[in-house]
């Protein structure tokens, strides 16, 4: 598949898709959005790039390793469950740090960390599927 419009457009669109996906991820706790949707949006940008330029190029250009993304996502998600254990709570209790509120991102807490894990894993899953199908 090779279309001029897509190949020019996608270069500009990828950062936009990424930004938008991060926006969705971090607003997810208070408004529609979240890790699942964010991860999907993030992967769509790269998927379009891969469809246009080939998976191998997408992989090299952005240092993407979908299986590693999955692994990191899972690790972060589990980590967000273990942190409360260290703090003396039960596994996966939500912990919040109330003192500060980062602009745009909101208050830091383990559920946000968990959502980041979901985001990475979903993006990795979708990209892994698309890449392995496209590579053949």
């Amino acid at each position: 598949m090779n279309s001029t419009i897509l190949s020019t457009g996608i270069r500009i669109l990828i950062p936009l898709f990424l930004l938008f996906s991060l926006f969705l991820l971090f607003r997810g706790h208070n408004a529609p959005g979240g890790g699942f949707v964010g991860g999907l949006v993030a992967s769509i940008g790269f998927a379009l790039y891969a469809i246009n330029y080939g998976a191998e190029r997408a992989r090299r250009r952005f240092y993407l390793r979908p299986l590693k993304l999955i692994a990191w996502g899972l690790l972060i998600a589990v980590l967000s469950g273990i942190i409360p254990l260290i703090a003396g709570e039960t596994f996966m209790t939500g912990l919040w740090y109330d003192e500060i509120s980062i602009p745009l991102l909101g208050k830091p807490g383990t559920p946000i960390l968990f959502d980041i894990g979901v985001y990475l894993l979903v993006a990795g899953t979708i990209l892994g599927i698309i890449f392995s199908l496209w590579e053949e």
């Binding site: 999907l40 979708i126 599927i129």
Partner: peptide, 10 residues
């Protein structure tokens, strides 16, 4: 349903 949709896709 949200998780069902995503898992369904997988």
């Amino acid at each position: 349903i949200l998780t069902a949709i995503v898992i369904g896709f997988g």
